[in-house]
Design a protein around this nucleic acid. Structure first.
Length: 544
RNA sequence: UGGGGUAUCGCCAAGCGGUAAGGCACAAGACUUUGACUCUUGCACUCGGUAGUUCGAAUCUACCUACCCCAGCCA
């Protein structure tokens, strides 16, 4: 095992130390989602850490559906998770389901009972809560804490044999009700539930708790490093307790290491809220472009590599952070800049007439698909006497640093002519109706060299596409027409299905830089307040 | 007032006793038939605070302060 790897974060450093100290031969990690929702960008960070860490050490990663709670899980989400992993380009070594471990887990519980380290408790949920103590006060022992091994064994068998109702009994680990760490105060490790499990049906009516199941699953699979988020730090003592006390665990014990989960500014990552948005009909679905789900990012035109690059850039640490979306945008922009097809587009059009160009005439103008790539082909755009240009590419009273079209000013139409605007035609209300311009055919001879180059479209030949705009309160999106693409590009198979152009983060000063499939989201901010879901910038903290 | 964590540039984040990496963002200049891209330059005498140890501290010690997580028969 190569321990001469340069660590790029504290987890890798810990693994290197483990390799040296414990003589681990191969690093094995696992990605253990619960199949109860679509994966979001936060899952991707975890995936990257799990898969990429193992990969770096030439180990492997298992995929495990952590389905120990029958009430919220479904096969549908299993598929969604799998396809997301594949889409990102990760490959798991083995696929497991926690629900496949139920027999093993049951045996582990029995082993604990036989050692007198677990007992069946008759306390109700309320009573358990009341006797657990508080953050500052110790808990009280359950009156059922000292049942005999035989009685416990019999009752646990009865629990499994469906002799009790939901909540009537639980199996608890016998640890220490006075432990300063609340997780160690005789945690429940099995509960009774008569809900139908999506894979096991009604075979079981008792289900193991996460804290009990997870370490055993890890150990069973030979996981060397169990990477999870910070909120499980408090659970690590319990994780280790289970591994140390269940005698069915043999061999090297996995080590749990925690990292800070991703918080992306302007959105919410809580699965509960996302579920609520979908189920409450506030958004169109899990792939609604306003959602932080992978499906939504995919729909907005983000590529797997750009999202993975984002995860690499934000790094892995233990401090709670709020990552700004501009980092993600920089990743996709960088990638698209290298390979995106360039087209001219006008989002907010203003009409211009070229008065010294025959109205029956058209010309085919060649524009490079990507000027950055010398081998890229060109596409044809049709030029005519009636054009659209971007409204903000014309200013009546420009400042000194405005290089685009102005009254009596010159500008270059990309790939075509240099024009001069000689008349601004307004309607009764004083709004600009159109501009009259003329082509300067002999610009070169006259030595006219405009500083600005702008996008344009032929009014008769461009194609309208649709974009979506959202209001402040999440509602059904209002569909309106606004963007336009040149027709030639739409005949190109790549953009045949363009439903929208996304200048989001891309329209930096001047012309639109890229056009890609997706939705236009105007300052989307997902948040929740007073039981309503808003698009405004309201932090989750404020909404509590 | 319990336990577990975290504090380094606007946002991420290296750093592990030898005198503050990098990315994003931002600013200035050069180039330019996308005001983009690219290039060049600038951007923490300072590491939550205060003491202390040391020739030397972001790194060690002590004491403060702020924020996050934990009292589901969720994960």
């Amino acid at each position: 095992m190569d321990s001469n790897i340069t660590p790029s974060n504290f987890i890798e450093q810990a693994i290197i130390d483990d390799i040296k100290e414990k003589g681990i031969k191969q690093i094995v990690t696992r990605f253990p989602p619960e199949p109860n929702g679509y994966p979001h960008i936060g899952h991707v960070k975890a995936m990257c850490i799990d898969f990429l860490t193992a990969e770096k050490f030439k180990g492997y990663t298992n995929l495990r559906m952590d389905d120990t709670n029958p009430s919220k899980e479904s096969e549908h989400f299993v598929k969604a998770l799998q396809s997301a992993i594949k889409w990102l380009g990760f490959r798991w070594k083995k696929m497991y389901y926690a629900s496949d471990y139920y027999d093993f887990l049951f045996d582990c519980a029995v082993d604990l009972i036989k050692q007198g380290k677990a007992y069946v408790c008759d306390l109700s949920a309320e009573e358990i809560s009341a006797t657990r103590g508080t953050l500052t006060e110790p808990g009280k022992n359950s009156p059922y804490r000292n049942r005999s091994v035989e009685e416990n064994l019999q009752m646990f068998m009865d629990m499994r044999a469906d002799k009790y109702k939901d909540g009537e009994k639980t199996l608890r680990a016998k640890i220490d009700m006075k432990h300063p760490n609340i997780n160690m105060r005789d945690p429940i490790i099995y509960r009774i539930s008569h809900e139908t499990h999506y894979r096991q049906g009604n075979k079981w009516c008792i289900y193991p708790m996460y804290d009990f199941a997870h370490p055993l699953e890890d150990a069973h699979e030979g996981i060397t490093h169990s990477l999870c988020s910070l909120e499980f730090e408090d659970h690590r003592p319990l994780y280790n307790w289970v591994l140390e006390n269940v005698r069915l665990v043999t061999g090297l014990k996995p080590r749990q290491i925690e990292f800070a989960r991703l918080n992306l500014d302007g959105t919410i990552m809580s699965k509960r809220y996302l579920r609520e948005l979908v189920e409450g009909g506030y958004v169109d679905g899990w792939d609604d472009p306003r959602m932080p789900t992978l499906e939504a990012f995919k729909r907005r035109g983000y590529t797997p590599s750009s999202i993975k690059e984002f995860c690499t850039r934000i790094g892995v640490a233990k401090s709670n952070s709020l990552v700004q979306p501009h980092i993600l945008e920089a990743c996709i922009r960088e990638e698209l800049n290298k390979n995106a097809l360039r087209v001219m587009a006008v989002v907010d059009p203003i009409k211009i007439n070229i008065t010294n160009y025959d109205e029956k005439r058209t010309e085919k103008v060649l524009v490079s698909n990507n000027p950055l790539d010398p081998k890229s082909k060109k596409h044809t755009v049709i030029f005519s006497n009636e054009l659209f240009i971007e409204r903000e590419d014309f200013i009546e009273k420009p400042g000194a640093k405005f290089f685009r079209l102005t009254p009596n000013g010159y500008v270059r139409l990309m790939g075509a002519y240099i024009i001069k605007c000689y008349e601004v035609v307004k309607d009764e209300l004083g709004n600009i109706d159109h501009l009259n311009c003329s082509i300067i055919y002999d610009a070169k001879e006259q030595g006219i060299k405009p500083k600005g180059t702008i996008h344009w479209l032929s009014r008769k030949h461009c194609k309208q596409i649709r974009t979506r705009k959202f209001g402040n309160l999440l509602k059904e999106g209002e569909v309106f027409e606004s963007g336009m693409l040149d027709k030639i590009v739409n005949s190109n198979s790549m953009t045949e299905n363009v439903s929208y152009i996304e200048p989001f983060g891309f329209k930096q000063k001047g012309n639109l830089q890229f056009v890609r499939m997706g939705y236009y989201i105007e300052d989307s901010k997902l948040s929740k307040k007073d039981d309503k879901i808003y698009l405004e910038t309201v932090s989750l903290k404020d909404s509590k």
